[in-house]
Design a protein around this nucleic acid. Structure first.
Length: 425
RNA sequence: GCGGUUGUGGUGAAGUUGGUUAACACACUGGAUUGUGGCUCCAGCAUUCGCGAGUUCGAGUCUCGUCAAUCGCCCCA
């Protein structure tokens, strides 16, 4: 026996208990999305590279972290590294902006791909759930969407969480702040680390995230976004916070929270476990994007959305004892002994047609082995048939709980099983 | 992209300064019980130690390479 192949780095197989847990999580998400009026959208796993590689993104991500390839027709395609862009593309392509009821509320759930160095909870093929509400700009929408993420986390049994929230303001506020930051940090250039030099050029807001320079004196006095919000932005943010208060969602205003993307406006937020200080801890992240739809050619529409990494959510939920795999029990196990041909399968098929899940042995094990297999399968009823029973067209039906066993004609098997299983419920 | 740790059967693992028949436990299969499980007892179950090369009379044990997992940094749309 040798391992001729192994899964590609950063991928994993999902089976046994694990896949049951995933399915449970997916069902829970779909159910809650439905409560909030979100509808599912499924977009292609790959898109034209330009869909993801807009001017808005730092070139690092685009060059190094995307799975891009040319197809046989010479088109440059990319495995989706995130959910939002594909949804916006679809929204514009199918002219959903013409819908009488905006915002259009969509959710997605599926694999994404990033060429990252794998770590615990971080894979190259990972799974993300996310929502996008496109076509409205209202604090109510922000609050409702945050509440949706909150409810899903709670439903998964994740309890000690809080919302980190900030406002980047509208375009005007943002540009003013960006300029203020650049002006402020430029004189300190010598004191900044290598990475910050790059950040200052590419995305000044990101400098605030720096872990190397964070504790230096001049960092404490760096301008705060809150001081650069214009009146409409300030009022908008206040409404969002009031909404969260009214819904009893705990939050913390974090002026340095900027998220990695340039397209965010006004509200940005992350949901984090409170007792976990590491920055790997973010389980949900999102915010408002004004201008993204327009950059896809879809008109001046505002959107709000978030994304959630399922791997991390599930890990966290399990740590907090939230998710238990529930293995569906098998109803009937048919034990066939001796030279009985397909007698066992015939009985099994009758029961399956009647709606019972039936298992049987294919390896000609002895009776002891088959009984053990039935036990492992959690079978509630065991049917034993051998050469004598085949002769008489009968079978022994045994209740595994009471251990009572009766011999009945083939035609009465279904009725007998029905009686035993019915009694149990 | 950088650094640390790890890699033995289906699973958990032991393996002393390199010497060989690769412990032990669980699981699994068969038998004791010629057709009735969960207890007990007996037997079987890794031509081989992630993969490849090297050092050596001899390597699971040392060296190098490689693949993978994991932790930290970077990044995290």
């Amino acid at each position: 026996m040798e391992n001729r192949y192994q899964m590609p780095r950063g991928t994993f197989d999902l089976f046994d208990e694990e896949v049951l847990i995933w399915r449970q999580v997916e069902q829970l998400i779909r159910r809650i999305c439905q409560l909030y009026g979100y509808e599912e959208i499924r977009t292609p796993i790959f898109e034209a590279t330009e869909v993801f590689a807009g001017e808005n993104d730092s070139s690092d991500m685009v060059n190094k972290e995307m799975y891009s390839f040319n197809d046989n027709g010479g088109r440059s395609l990319t495995l989706r590294p995130e959910g939002t862009k594909g949804i916006i593309r679809a929204f514009v392509e199918h002219k959903m902006f013409g819908s009488p009821d905006l915002p259009r509320k969509l959710y997605y759930l599926g694999p994404m791909f990033r060429y990252d160095r794998p770590q615990k909870g971080r894979y190259r093929q990972f799974h993300q759930f996310g929502v996008e509400a496109i076509g409205a700009r209202d604090p109510l929408l922000d609050v409702e969407t945050i509440a949706l993420g909150w409810q899903i986390a709670k439903a998964m049994g994740i309890n000690n969480i809080t919302v980190m929230i900030n406002s980047l303001g509208d375009k005007e506020s943002r540009d003013a702040y960006r300029k203020a930051l650049t002006d402020y940090f430029t004189p300190h250039l010598d004191e900044l680390c290598e990475d910050c030099h790059r950040r200052l050029r590419q995305n000044p807001l990101r400098v605030l995230d720096c872990k190397v320079d964070r504790d230096k004196d001049f960092f404490r006095d760096a301008p705060s976004i809150q001081d650069y919000l214009n009146e409409p932005s300030r009022a908008y943010f206040a409404s969002v916070l009031k909404g969260l208060d009214d819904l009893g969602i705990s939050y913390q205003v974090e002026p340095h929270l900027v998220r990695g993307l340039d397209y965010y406006t006004n509200t940005v937020f992350e949901v984090v476990p409170v007792d976990d200080a590491g920055q790997q801890a973010t389980i949900i992240g999102g915010g408002q994007y004004d201008g993204l739809v327009e950059s896809f050619g879809g008109g001046d529409l505002c959107g709000f959305g978030f994304g959630m990494g399922l791997e991390r959510m599930i890990t966290l939920a399990k740590e907090q004892g939230g998710l238990q795999a529930i293995k569906p029990a098998n109803d009937v196990y048919v034990i066939a002994i001796g030279e009985v041909g397909d007698y066992g399968l015939t009985i099994a098929q009758q029961l399956r047609s009647a709606g019972y899940s039936v298992a049987l042995d294919y390896t000609h094990r002895g009776m002891k082995g088959q009984f053990k297999a039935a036990e492992r399968a959690g079978s509630k009823v065991i049917i034993i048939a051998g050469e004598d029973e085949l002769q008489q067209q009968k079978a022994n039906v045994k209740d595994t709980e009471t251990k009572e066993q009766i011999t009945v004609p083939v035609s009465e098997i279904i009725g007998t099983v029905e009686k035993i299983l019915g009694k149990r419920k």
